[in-house]
């Protein structure tokens, strides 16, 4: 089996894509934190459920951004082959 330069680059791109989506760990922890505090806030004050829900979703969406950057980088590495 011969491995030429392009095969090597593609293999390394796949590994890099795998490493890039590790950024999902931080996103998961952050979103879980937000959801947990949201749940405890609803437990303390059930009347403000709607307000807490929308604030929590907004915070989670902002926290999600870094994970999505990782995802975009991984997809670019896998499907667009920016390195050749």
């Amino acid at each position: 089996m011969d491995i030429n330069g392009q095969d090597l680059i593609r293999a390394c791109s796949a590994i890099g894509a795998g490493i890039a989506v590790i950024s999902g760990i931080g996103t998961g922890i952050g979103q879980g934190n937000a959801a947990g505090y949201g749940a405890s806030a609803v437990g303390r004050n059930p009347g403000a459920r709607g307000q807490i829900m929308s604030t929590m979703l907004l915070g989670q969406a902002v926290a999600e951004t870094t994970g999505l950057y990782g995802l975009v980088v991984a997809l670019l590495l896998l499907f667009v082959h920016p390195l050749g």
């Binding site: 969406a61 999600e64 951004t65 999505l68 950057y69 995802l71 975009v72 997809l75």
Partner: peptide
């Protein structure tokens, strides 16, 4: 950039 990438990446991941 972050607004557009957030929407784009979420929908794209579902599509993929």
């Amino acid at each position: 950039i972050s607004l557009s990438l957030r929407l784009f990446a979420n929908v794209l991941s579902g599509t993929v």
